[in-house]
Amino acid sequence: MAQLASKQFLLPNTRQSIKPSVQEVLDFVINSLPASVNAEGISFKIEVIIIELLTNGIKHAGTIETFLDVTINEDNINIDKKDFGNRFHPGNITSLLVYDVGHRELLTKDGLHSMYAVVESDTQIRFVCEEENGDEVLDVTNLMEHFGLLIITKSSDTFTYKYDVDTGLNTFSVIIDLN
């Protein structure tokens, strides 16, 4: 798989910096895309994914800066958000060591979606979102109020989180297929 472009961004972890950071990354991606790709459709996905990765970092990481590695290949775009801040604990997961590989842990559920973390190893999970079929009357009092993971999961083709125990490195990895 041929790599077309790659760049590492070092971005400030502040609320005020999100918009300019998103624009900086977006400009790089759009200018690096193969001519055959519909830039408008990709642009929306990249924008919401970067917004939510950075917002999640501000909420949970507790670091001053965050690294964003962006790679554009012929077939996909890979975005890795890295920091050495607090370990991320989605839902009630406190340790992956107690789960078997392949275990699906329900994170949130309402009348629209169910969000799961699928255990891929003792340090990595993959987020999966399933839409509810809507046969029943929607109970709006039960609607979830946290959309960050859901937006990234639904905007991408693969979304994983990995924690390196030895170095304390958090890596959120997003892949968007271009085909």
Binding site: E52, T55, V140, T141, L143, M144, E145, H146, F147, L150
Partner: peptide, 17 residues
């Protein structure tokens, strides 16, 4: 962003009640 979406939903749930 998602945080503001959450605030809209939260306000909506309050008024719906």
């Amino acid at each position: 962003d998602s945080s503001f979406l959450g605030s809209i939903v939260s306000a909506f749930k309050h008024l719906i009640s």
